[in-house]
Nucleic acid binder design. Sequence first.
DNA 1: AAGTGCGGCAACCGCAAAAGG
DNA 2: ACCTTTTGCGGTTGCCGCACT
Length: 303
Amino acid sequence: MGKSSGYAPESGIKRGPWTPEEDKRLLAYIQLHGHRSWSSLPQKAGLKRCGKSCRLRWRNYLRPDIKRGNFSLHEDQTIIQLHALLGNRWSAIAAHLPKRTDNEIKNYWNAHLKKRLAKMGFDPVTHKSKAAILASANGDPKMLQAEARFVKESFLRMPESAPAVSLFDDYHQLAPPIVPQCLDMLEASAWESLISMSKSSSRSAALTNDINGLDHHHVHDHGLNMNGQDCGPNFQVPISDQQLSSLMGCDEATAPSAATGSMNINELFGQYCGNECSELLAVLHHNIGFESEDAWTSLGKLM
DNA sequence: AAGTGCGGCAACCGCAAAAGG
DNA sequence: ACCTTTTGCGGTTGCCGCACT
């Protein structure tokens, strides 16, 4: 494993996978003496490893307070949120996920979450929808304006659900004073797409001004219909088959039909996320907080 | 059953920051 | 204040096992 494995006779230092015997020795030594100096530890413990390797093995595998195995939905959510805030600062992210190592989180991100976000049409680096990035690249002033407003709103938003451990104890030390208590990029990206889609709809031209005047909190809290009127959580958004197909990145012919020209918001998320993202849909459900279970039941049928 | 391709994960490397002399 | 050593972090690599042909 690793870049170079096996025994390096010239230095007497062993590399590669750890054997159970080595694990046992390392564990026994640390339990007895602690690990004050990794550089001298291998010799004292009778291991033909470098201190760095011993430290890594302890940190990522042998430590007693390590949870291994599948990540929970809540952990997924926390990682995505923290990554949106902190980027690839795995140790900082791991600090907020008890019993998970930075290495494990990094691997999990690269192997699973990154791909899942990409599949949903979000850029895993910026956590923005690819449609918005494209519009930004094209310099669409309306989109840029909307995006700026959206980011601002996201940052000013107060939390509805706390992450596994309060991340802002540390975060306050790194960031300017005005920071979000909980920035949910998933939600933000989803609403961003939704709003920009509504704004670009030919059928909703008359609404554009109305929607321009609304932020996603308003939408979240009240919902709005095609006329920009509050109408509860089951509000409809205008969407054409063409828009839906472009959103989903497939042919109009193969995309699910929007049929009536407007979709229930929950159905829209179902279409948008695809049928393979039930977990993320559940996260969205949790964060966005729709009260209508019926809508989510119908969404379940979609999947 | 054997071969091949791919994804997941453990472990390594290089660099930077912190600590110690 | 400077140099050396140690520790910590993020990126990358390569083995292993599973799925597919």
